[in-house]
Each structure stands twice: as structure tokens, then as C-alpha cells.
Write a protein that binds this DNA or RNA. Structure first.
Lengths: 340, 340
DNA sequence: TTGTATGCGTTATCAA
DNA sequence: TTGATAACGCATACAA
């Protein structure tokens, strides 16, 4: 803890070259003689030198970082998106930095989270949750803000912002049609807060109604966790024993429904069909085997990566939209409606 | 995208004060007159100014950031640790930045991940996975490296490094005793790579043997995912139909075992008992209802946070250890051994 | 291919 | 309580 960290100066001195030479080697320039390069590299190894990101960011004006804003680490739908994004941007040398807003319960805390996000000075920001209000203000449409790409729901995308969307309305409709085809007419839905939740809910209710069914919706404005889903489902199933199916707004909540059903001694899918949304890894598990909607978040990550590259490369934000069509993944938790 | 980002200079000019004054306001100093403070604040709001972290880090030498290295976002055991850590460090104004190594399959890629981690120049590094070799080298014991705290397993902690450990040996023993008490004698174990996995495995095998039982271990060096656990369990259960219980090295793999059992038509817990480790949120779900070990990762996060504060505050690394005693959470996936 | 000089946006040390 | 000024460690013209 005594000596100071080595800087590019130290490396240059040890290698017997100038600072710029070291910088060139660091940045992988090909206009450096092999001798110099080697000298620099051994000096780096010897000193245990690591470049200071702060200094290089400050000098270059670029952070080579893409910041991703998510809701909650516990809701793992973003994992595939991240993999797609990283895969797409790794070649360009970008780092991906994740920031969660799970702790930000009130708008003030959310604003602080966004401030922290912005102070990262990332080259681009990917928002994989509802767009926080503080990210849409006047100041952010100007030079102050880095390029923004929203990975979200088809509706609710603000004007002029680029984004890749899942067609939540279509996904929810797939679930509705699946359940209707199985004979379900009295269906529960555990809605969640936010744009995607609203889109899924509205579309689901409309599609079921169009098919001659009826939906009992349970509102829910807290975290969209398994525990919350379970509690909500317990209330719903007790109050509405006539329901033959429940659609959870995401996999986590749907898994909560499965837990509630088990607790109440309701067999799935014989007595109750359950569907989720997001196609998380855990939903594919043999024990869960949850019917769900694949929103293609990996592909979404790839598309987001491309947009980010375009925007960082200079293309002006033009509110470009790409919509990915979700597909239904029928599994073991949905089956024919029970006879009443 | 035309105008440049406002800097502290611009704020000073608009507010009619000096740059240092602005800096003082930013850092919340109390030796600033109310008039100046207000002028600065309105200027900040007007310009949409955000401080540059790069510049402030460079000038101050502090990043106010704690970097956390994890394995994989999909294995959510770290979530509680993170919450504990953030809760403990939030008051001190520290940010927490998570870096995953899921993409780093070979040692070279891992080294690059670690380089990226180090270049963050975080004020401290928390390693919540096996300590990568490149983080223990000679260079890192000197001034080059920031304080390091390991959140890991009790064994395998390198000399001189501070850390908070889960007593994996004790946890695995709890599982062994639980299963033995239920009459199980022929037990399978899905091991995982890494220190925690090795500790759990060794302790489990020893404890079962001491109780007169026998363990069939399936090695596994890939990712510790649900899918892998399921595949491994399928092989294990087919080859060893005499097993009455299986202990998965973590919840994800144990859930894989549940899936395999279901696929093979084996009833849990009537015909097969299954236990996991980590007490993840999903394991608590009513559908899973997995017997598991609570390794108290939230508390671990809090302890890690305290150590980090001490180390950043100047206490020299002294290889301090704190060990948290795990507890068994018996749930519905374990029951009396079936009669053979 | 290599070296020099300047600036990036802050913080921190002094003076005032 | 305020202001001027020197670091901080690197990138990048530009010059050699």
C-alpha cells in the first residue's frame, strides 16, 4: 500500500521510450516498431501497470461503455438481452455496465439512480425497463445525453427515441388464443405495473373478450416477484373458484400462481391452466414446465447492439423502431379447461 | 447533438462564481453561502449539467465505486449479497458496480475480464466467485491493487486476503445429517466446479460416510445451470436407480434434478428426496418448495460492506475472516427414504 | 517510427 | 467564504 500506482510515465521511463509510444502500444497501433512494443510490454508486465480509465476517458471523451438500466437483478429476463448485446458489441471493444433500480422505490430515488447512470458518461444508454421520466426531460434531448436505445414494449415508446420492442400485445394475444382454444372462458390475469404490463393486460383482456371469454384482472403495483404473484394468486383463486386459467404478466408471477395453486390443492393443468411471459431459463425447468411467451430477448439484445453502434457512429436518433414478434411456447402448465 | 456538454466552467460562468465554488457545492460543503449555493444550483438545473466522473475520479483519485465480480447473472444467489452490500455502503455514497464472468470460458478471457475490472479503478473489489488467478499475482499484493474482499467459501481463501465466508462444509453437513436422519443411505451428489463446490462435496461425502451411507458423485465442470443439472441428474438416476436422494450443489442444479425426476416419472419426495444450496428466491416458490441451505448471503453482503469500509478507510489487509454459519431450510422435496 | 506539447473536467492546495 | 492555480493520467494533434 506504500508505492503509488504506476502510470504511463513510469512505463515509458522503464521501457526507455516516450509516453506517446506507450499510449500507441496500449491502443494496439501498428505503427510501432517491434522492439519498442516489446520493451513497453515487458515494462507493463514488470510494473503491473493498468491504464487508468478515468484518465483515458477524460482525454479521449469516450468511455467505451454502454450502460444498461434494468429493473431488478432478481428478474432474470434481461440476462439473454445482455448476452445478445455483449455478443454484438464485444468486437467493438465496448464494455457493458449494468445498473439496477430495484432499490429505487420512489421517484426521487429513481432520479438519483438515473443521475448515477448519467454520470457514468457511457457512450450510449440502453433502457431495459420503463423509461424513467428523468431520462426524457428537455435537457436530455440535447447534447447533454448520450444516445439512448429503449428495449421495451411496442407501445409507450416516446417520440424520437430509438428502440427495439417486443410486441407485448401480440404475445398476450397468443396466450389468449391458446387458452381460448383449450376451452377456457373464465380467466384470471395478474397484471404488473409498467408499459409492458399494461400492454399485455390490455391486449389479453381484449383478445379474451373477442373470443367470448372474460378476464378477472388483479392489479399489482409492487415488485413483480414470485412471492407477490403467489400472494395475489391466492386471493384471486379463493375469490374466484370458477377460473380455469390464470395468465401471469411474467414468468416469476406465473410461478407464484403455480405455488398458490399447489397450496390450495388445485392441480395444474387438470384443474387450472397457468401461463407466463418472458421465457426465462427457470420456466423451462422440468418441474416448472411453464407455458410462456418467448419474447426473443437475445435477438433483442443483438438488435439493440446494432442500433447502439449506429448511434455511437454518428447516425442521428430518428426514433427508429424494430419490433420482434414473440412466439408462444406451450408447455405442461396449460391444458383443456376443466368441466365445471 | 450540436452543443457541447456543459462543464463546471459553464456553471461557474452562469452562476457568476468561481469553479472552486461550484465544486464545493457539488460536494455538499457547508462552507458556502446560501446565495452562492442557490446561484450554482439554478445554473446546474438550467444547463442540465452533470459532473464528469472521469474528471472527478482523475482529480480525486477515488472512484467511490465498489466493483463486485460474480459468475453469472443467471445464478441469482448474489442478489441478496448485493442488497446487503448496497444497504451497508449506500450511506457512504458508494456505488456498486457488477461485473460478470459468464462469458469468460477460458483463462485468457477471464484474465481480460479481470483486466476490465481492474481498469475500473474501483476503491475496492469484492469477489463473489472463485478468486481468479490473475487477481492473486504478485503485482496485486502491492499498491497496484485496490483492497480486496472475498465473499466465498471458508476453505480456499488465500493467505492475507480479507473475506467473509459461508461455511460450506457445515452447510453440506447439515444436508447430509438431514438426509441420514430421514433414512437415506444411497445418495447422489451433483458437484460443481470451484471452491464452494469442492467444499460442499468433500464435506457431504464425509458426513454421509460417517453416518453409514454412500455417495455417488457426478462431477461437473461446466456452468452450474438448471439445464446442466437436469442432464447430469438424468444420467445419474438412470445409472443408479437405487438412489433415494440427490443433493445438488446449488439450487439451480437441484431444480434440474427435480426436472429430471419428473421426466423419469420419479415422485418427489416419495421416491426421491432432493436438496439444494443457496436458498434462492425461486427455490422458496410453492411449486419448487426445495429443501435448501440458507447461506445468509444478505448478512454476508453486510459484513463484506463493513470490511470494505474498513479497508478503504485505511486498515491494512490482514486476512481477516468472518464465517457465517448456514442453516438448513427443510421443505417439501425431502422426506423419509423409500423402502427398497 | 518516435517525441513534444496541449487539453480533457475535476479536485485540492493555497492565498486572499 | 471565495478564487487562482497546479496536479490527476492519458490521448492526440503536430513536429521531428
Amino acid at each position: 500500500m506504500s508505492e503509488k500506482r504506476p502510470t504511463i510515465y513510469d512505463v515509458a521511463r522503464v521501457a526507455g521510450v516516450s509516453r506517446s509510444l506507450v499510449s500507441l502500444v496500449l491502443r494496439g497501433s501498428d505503427k510501432v516498431s517491434d522492439a519498442s512494443r516489446e520493451a513497453v510490454e515487458t515494462a507493463i508486465a514488470e510494473l503491473g501497470y493498468r491504464p487508468s480509465r478515468a484518465a483515458s476517458e477524460l482525454a479521449s471523451g469516450r468511455t467505451e461503455t454502454i450502460a444498461v438500466l434494468i429493473d431488478d437483478y432478481a428478474n432474470t429476463w434481461f440476462v439473454d438481452l445482455l448476452r445478445g448485446l455483449e455478443g454484438e458489441l464485444a468486437r467493438d471493444g465496448y464494455r457493458v455496465s449494468v445498473v439496477d433500480t430495484a432499490g429505487a422505490t420512489d421517484t426521487e430515488a429513481l432520479r438519483r439512480s438515473v443521475d448515477a447512470l448519467l454520470s457514468l458518461r457511457a457512450d450510449a444508454i440502453v433502457v431495459a425497463r420503463d423509461l424513467p421520466p428523468s431520462l426524457t426531460g428537455r435537457t436530455l434531448t440535447t447534447a447533454v445525453a448520450p444516445p439512448l436505445v429503449v428495449a421495451g414494449t411496442r407501445l409507450d415508446m416516446p417520440e424520437g427515441v430509438d428502440g427495439v420492442a417486443n410486441d407485448d400485445a401480440a404475445g398476450a394475444r397468443l396466450v389468449a388464443e391458446h387458452l381460448l382454444a383449450l376451452g377456457h372462458r373464465r380467466i384470471g390475469h395478474l397484471a404488473v405495473a409498467g408499459g409492458a404490463g399494461a400492454a399485455r393486460r390490455a391486449s389479453f383482456v381484449a383478445a379474451v373478450a373477442a373470443g367470448g371469454g372474460e378476464v378477472i384482472v388483479v392489479e399489482h403495483d409492487g415488485a413483480a416477484t414470485e412471492a407477490e404473484g403467489r400472494a395475489a394468486a391466492l386471493g384471486l383463486l379463493r375469490a374466484h373458484p370458477e377460473l380455469t386459467a390464470v395468465f401471469g404478466a411474467n414468468d416469476l408471477m406465473a410461478i407464484g400462481v403455480l405455488g398458490a395453486a399447489r397450496e390450495l390443492g388445485i392441480r395444474v393443468p387438470e384443474q387450472l391452466s397457468v401461463a407466463g411471459y418472458d421465457s426465462t431459463e427457470i420456466a423451462a425447468s422440468g418441474v416448472i414446465d411453464l407455458t410462456t411467451v418467448d419474447d426473443r430477448s437475445y435477438d433483442m439484445g443483438v438488435e439493440v447492439g446494432r442500433m447502439v453502434r449506429d448511434l455511437v457512429g454518428g447516425r442521428p436518433a430518428a426514433g427508429e423502431r424494430r419490433v420482434l414478434e414473440p412466439t408462444l411456447i406451450p408447455r405442461g402448465t396449460t391444458g383443456p379447461a376443466r368441466r365445471l
